[in-house]
Design a binder for these strands. Sequence first.
DNA 1: CGCATACTTAACCAATCGGTTAATTGCGAA
DNA 2: TTCGCAATTAACCGATTGGTTAAGTATGCG
Lengths: 97, 97
Amino acid sequence: MRDSVLLLSSDQLNLTFAALADPTRRAILARLIAGHTTVTALAEPHDMNLPAISKHLRVPERSGLIERSRDAQSRPSHLKAEPLKQAVDWLGSNRRH
Amino acid sequence: MRDSVLLLSSDQLNLTFAALADPTRRAILARLIAGHTTVTALAEPHDMNLPAISKHLRVPERSGLIERSRDAQSRPSHLKAEPLKQAVDWLGSNRRH
DNA sequence: CGCATACTTAACCAATCGGTTAATTGCGAA
DNA sequence: TTCGCAATTAACCGATTGGTTAAGTATGCG
């Protein structure tokens, strides 16, 4: 069974914040702001092998932070705005200014 | 040896986002916006015992999200703004997408 | 002092995490 | 069809997480 597309917002916040709680994944997400790119390219700056990056990518994917497509042999990742927006909204509504 | 007060900003982001990645802890932090309160009061809405809440509190404490003081037998928790600000800043500078 | 209140600490446990190596799949080129 | 590149999956491992129960500690009150 694949993961559901519908996530309760609490579950999605769990997954989004968990995805952000690792420096490798934050670097990957920051890189993806510049535009979609392949797993090998995402792996290049990091001192770990492809399977490790592949596993890392599954974390933000489960929260909807990224989506993946296919381009020949490559599986480019694309950043999606909605989960980030949700995280920002939670932080915004929970901060006394 | 106690935890260091000085955290590398990357480490602090790790700890802050990890603290936010759990619904019990988010509820606790949201409650603390209304003002400082005790462990027992924080535990009351949750279906788990005091040691569990005590452990939960150690997570945002390690990131600096909360600080704890003493008032007779109680150990009230206080929300601190700086780590939240850092998290918002990371999200802000990584969203223009 | 003796006792209650408010936690915290210790020990334990199953599940998840973050990495590894080795094998496998998907795709395009020759 | 065979080859090679890109990426995933499987199996494994030690460390961490999130909960439990039971015992220990700090503080205030009569």
